[in-house]
Design a protein around this nucleic acid. Structure first.
Lengths: 208, 208
DNA sequence: CCCTATAAAAATGTATACATTTTATAAAAG
DNA sequence: CTTTTATAAAATGTATACATTTTTATAGGG
């Protein structure tokens, strides 16, 4: 497992307090490597929002920022329906089948850990998005999703919301299957919006 | 000047052929530094689209890809009007004045080099966007703009298009000044679309 | 008592050296 | 002659050592 992944895991699990300043030396000692790989990992983490520059020296663990979440979901609301619409004409039975399999897998086991749910959730959408064959647009959407991961983290979604979310997933898939990409796009926009609101609520309750 | 900037400059000026594979060792020798700073610069350049991974080893100078341009401008068309709309209520006379100054400066000297024109063009929009005080959204828009830079490069805009572009800039600014942010957003969307089409045309003429 | 300037300490940036991994080359077997 | 495998070469990853920059602590002057 790469150092990048190890640090990200620890950030996700809240091993480092928000606001905490991390020095290259500390991290190198902590993970028992030299500062060179630390530099690489830190730079990548910075570019993905897991760490933020802290003046001229060092990096800091970013605090949870409701405004950042709002921005991320506003952008996803505009870009994801676009990407899905571009993908719609390219969807074939095989791709649609794989997407449905993912949804079924999420429903199959109600004890799935939050991290797994999150991974499957993205796998479903990504499966559809990839069909568009638009690497640049996909890369940006994926990056936005990664930035959201920091907030979603180990949030245990309520079973209630999970049911709603799955209903929306199936509705989107059904619309795509019958070739109604406009409806699918509009459903997706609402779906992203709802996810954003759900997350904002969770953050308010947690950070108040 | 940082190594990152130096390499970017050389990529912009076409010193490296598209498709060419660059080795850390080569770059280190070429710029007369060790491989450590090369690694840092290359990683950053990769994250901004100036270089692309080349399998497991080395990085390559990306070829010009019309589809990438289309994606970038599609995204900008959706995100920039959003950001400008969020900024609109926060705009004061001082900010609007600075924006107008930038436009006037672009008009003042018709012999301005292409790079300067591009910088002022972004300065105008960024000046308005910053007023929104939405760092995350701004950062993404800025990154998209940076990715476009590779294509805009040293494209010498036709004076004809430059005049059209300036007319659109003033129209946007006027709409904002009279508080009509909806019109301003719609003008901006068209403005970005026009810039994208202009660039696509330029690439068609240059590449095939 | 506060401010400034200077020196010490700490953190980051970079070079060199070494280790590991990948790719290319060449030899041998089919 | 082609394919496979073993060896060599090359490129990247990482550790250590050194240089530079920034921060902090301290002493002196106002």
């Amino acid at each position: 497992m790469s150092l990048y992944q190890r640090i990200k895991e620890d950030l996700l699990r809240g091993r480092f307090a928000p606001g905490q300043v991390l020095k290259q030396t500390e991290l190198a000692e902590l993970y028992d490597v030299s500062r060179i790989p630390v530099r690489d990992a830190v730079q990548q983490l910075k570019s993905e929002g897991w760490l933020t520059g802290h003046g001229k020296r060092g990096v800091a663990v970013p605090r949870f920022d409701p405004l950042e979440v709002e921005d991320l979901y506003l952008m996803r609301m505009r870009l994801e329906p676009l990407l899905q619409t571009l993908a719609a004409p390219q969807l074939n039975a095989e791709t649609l089948g794989r997407a449905r399999d993912i949804l079924d897998r999420m429903d199959a086991d109600p004890t799935l850990p939050a991290a797994e749910i999150g991974a499957l959730n993205w796998a479903f959408h990504a499966c559809l998005y990839k069909a568009a064959a638009r690497p640049t647009l996909f890369a940006t959407v994926e990056q936005l999703h990664r930035q959201c991961e920091r907030y979603i983290g180990y949030q245990s979604r309520s079973l209630d919301y999970q049911r709603t979310s799955q209903r929306e997933h199936y509705a989107i898939l059904d619309a795509l299957q019958r070739g109604d990409s406009e409806t699918a796009a509009s459903l997706l926009e609402q779906h992203v919006a709802a996810a954003g609101q759900q997350l904002a609520e969770f953050l308010r309750a947690r950070c108040d």
